[in-house]
């Protein structure tokens, strides 16, 4: 990645954070923490890594994305809007009756969404099937499968990981967003994940841990994953739930945030203004 594309990825991450905050503030509530923790990954994917055509979202040669932790849909929607899949104004229809942007991604409604997700664990199997199918078709496209750390409580994830590893589907890059928290608290308290890298290795993956809020580190890990031959690949993202906005990083219950107190609303507005300044500075 050149400095320029790295800058593009970082700028996109800032836009995603701004848009997520703006959407959820407009909505009054939403899944903020897990959306912000993958903003940098989305920035790298849509800012540099992915092969896509925003005007032709079903382009056969595109790379696929499956956001199995579907509650982070707002981050994906922001990435898609900022990448030209649909107009940014649509973001503010999130969760409205009849919207094309439901809380959890729907492949029948959202341009750029390759698989419907939301019932945790299920995206892992569908992504596995997509990767298997792409290989059968002789396609060079990748499936980028994004899984939550809390989501790994679901046994289906491990069934799918077995299939991905057994079939050495190295065209399916598995990202685990290890943001350390799930709805009821810290993952180590709710259901201890232990060492995710060791776990993935035990399942037959080439696995690494990287700073998930660092665009350069993410890009390097993706390039390393793509160079792996004959083995499934996983990247464990060391992330912070609510990343990029200190107030929300420190909020304990930041899985779903209600913007219903002056303090929370002010902090969100302040963060949006700060991100706007960063974005304007970058684009100036």
């Amino acid at each position: 990645m050149t400095t320029d594309t790295l800058a593009t990825a970082r700028l996109l991450a800032a836009k995603i954070r701004r848009d997520v905050l703006s959407m959820l503030l407009d909505e009054g509530q939403g899944h903020l923490g897990g959306s912000l923790s993958i903003a940098d990954l989305m920035g790298v994917l849509y800012g540099k890594e992915l092969r896509y055509d925003a005007k032709n979202p079903h382009w056969e040669d595109r790379d696929r994305v499956v956001l199995s932790k579907g509650h982070a849909g707002p981050a994906w929607y922001a990435a898609l809007a900022e990448s030209g899949f649909f107009d940014r104004d649509v973001l503010y229809t999130l969760n409205d009756g009849g919207t094309m942007l439901p809380s959890h991604p729907d492949r029948l409604k959202v341009p750029g969404v390759d698989m419907t997700t939301g019932s945790l664990g299920q995206g892992t199997s569908t992504a596995a099937g997509m990767a298997y199918a792409l290989r059968l078709k002789g396609s060079s496209s990748y499936v980028h499968l994004i899984v939550g750390d809390g989501e790994l409580n679901e046994g289906q994830c491990w069934e799918a990981f077995q299939f991905i590893a057994h079939n050495r589907l190295n065209n399916c890059i598995v990202y685990i967003d290890d943001n350390k928290k799930q709805l009821d608290g810290y993952t180590k308290d709710v259901m201890n994940p232990f060492d995710l890298v060791e776990k993935m290795r035990a399942f037959g993956f080439h696995a690494v841990r990287v700073n998930g809020q660092d665009a350069a580190a993410l890009d390097a890990a993706i390039q390393e994953a793509k160079a792996v031959q004959d083995s499934a690949v996983a990247i464990v993202l060391d992330t912070v739930k609510g990343a990029g906005v200190p107030f929300f990083e420190q909020m304990m219950g930041n899985h779903s945030v209600k913007f219903n107190t002056p303090e929370v609303i002010d902090e969100a507005k302040r963060a949006i203004a700060a991100l706007d300044a960063v974005i304007e500075g970058s684009e100036a």
Binding site: T126, G129, A133, Q156, E159
Partner: peptide, 22 residues
């Protein structure tokens, strides 16, 4: 496609293959 003893996973894999035209 051998999915092993994992019926729920098999249905998801089938769905993913369907999305790719199978």
């Amino acid at each position: 496609v051998q999915c092993g003893i994992a019926e729920a996973d098999m249905m998801g894999i089938a769905a993913g293959m369907s999305a790719e035209g199978f």
